[in-house]
């Protein structure tokens, strides 16, 4: 926890206005340090996915600057594997088996056949899907698909993992077990994680920091440092305090919207 932690992502005065006129983000200022697990928490339509896409180089800021490891995201993805993205739905290619889906990033980056299989088997083992290599996505449950898409994201050993509501469509049990697995992976791989959610409990359970966002225009309402040690206990009174805190800033951001 040195004072000079490396900066991974920085938003500097970022505006995003879609050509439909929707102001998705307004004056977003945020700095994310190496090794952090930061959650974007906010109501639907507040620009969480928009922000994440810009970090991945999949969208341009209308005003301001987004930088990842001091570079423009578009340049970064062109010549490195530093960024991986877990999409809102699992986004697997239906015509590829589990193994071939996980291999895809490595294939596109031109790894040789043996290396990519070896790596893919490693990450699939990590997410507990070693026995499903030859299954097709349609033969898997929702939770398993999510695991595959996480494995695919991890395959190229990213330094920054972006996750857009990866667990939103899952039942509570599956979600909790995946949350624990994700924390294990985070610890093991030393990645920085940017996680989007609109579930307060999820944000408090997972994150080292929570960026609460308000809607229309999307802006940062508050930044909460979650000072609880991992693994976290969901029924602990401190945990509940953080949940309350996050809920309050969320409500506050909603109310402010109504005043405007």
């Amino acid at each position: 926890m040195g004072a000079i932690q490396k900066e991974v992502v920085s938003f500097k005065g970022v505006d995003k206005i879609y050509n439909t006129g929707t102001v998705a983000l307004s004056q977003l200022e945020l700095s994310i340090k190496e090794g952090e697990f930061i959650s974007f928490l906010g109501p639907s339509g507040c620009g969480k996915s928009t922000a994440l896409r810009m970090v991945a180089g999949l969208g341009e800021a209308t005003k301001g600057k987004v930088e990842v490891f001091g570079q423009k995201p578009k340049d970064l993805i062109r010549n490195s594997n530093d960024i991986a993205y877990v999409f809102q739905d699992s986004n697997l290619l239906p015509w590829r088996t589990v193994l071939d889906n996980v291999v895809l990033p490595l294939e596109l980056r031109g790894f040789n056949k043996n290396t990519r299989k070896e790596i893919a088997l490693g990450v699939l083992e990590m997410v507990g899907l070693k026995d499903y290599l030859t299954s097709y996505p349609r033969q898997l449950s929702g939770g398993m698909k999510t695991r595959v898409s996480i494995a695919r994201a991890l395959a190229a050993k990213p330094k920054l993992l972006l996750m857009d509501e990866p667990f939103a469509a899952l039942d509570e049990m599956t979600r909790q077990s995946l949350q624990m697995d994700l924390l294990d992976i985070w610890k093991k791989e030393h990645t920085t994680i940017l996680f989007v959610t609109h579930n307060v409990y999820e944000a408090v359970y997972l994150s080292s920091k929570i960026a609460v966002m308000s809607a229309r225009p999307g802006r940062l309402a508050s930044l909460i440092d979650v000072g609880l040690p991992y693994p976290r206990d969901r029924v602990n009174s401190e945990f509940t305090e953080y949940v309350d805190l996050a809920s309050q800033s969320l409500e506050h951001s909603l109310n402010r919207k109504e005043l405007v």
């Binding site: 896409r53 991945a56 180089g57 999949l58 993805i77 062109r78 010549n79 594997n81 960024i83 991986a84 993205y85 999409f87 809102q88 739905d89 986004n91 290619l93 015509w95 895809l104 990033p105 294939e107 596109l108 980056r109 190229a156």
Partner: peptide, 28 residues
């Protein structure tokens, strides 16, 4: 699918890779 296209963009897929590994299978 837009997300699948984004996935390929993220890994800097060439036009050729987009065609053979994504667009043609999707068009099947």
């Amino acid at each position: 699918d837009k997300n699948m296209g984004d996935l390929f963009t993220l890994y800097n897929a060439s036009k050729w890779q987009m065609m053979w590994k994504l667009r043609i299978p999707a068009a099947m």
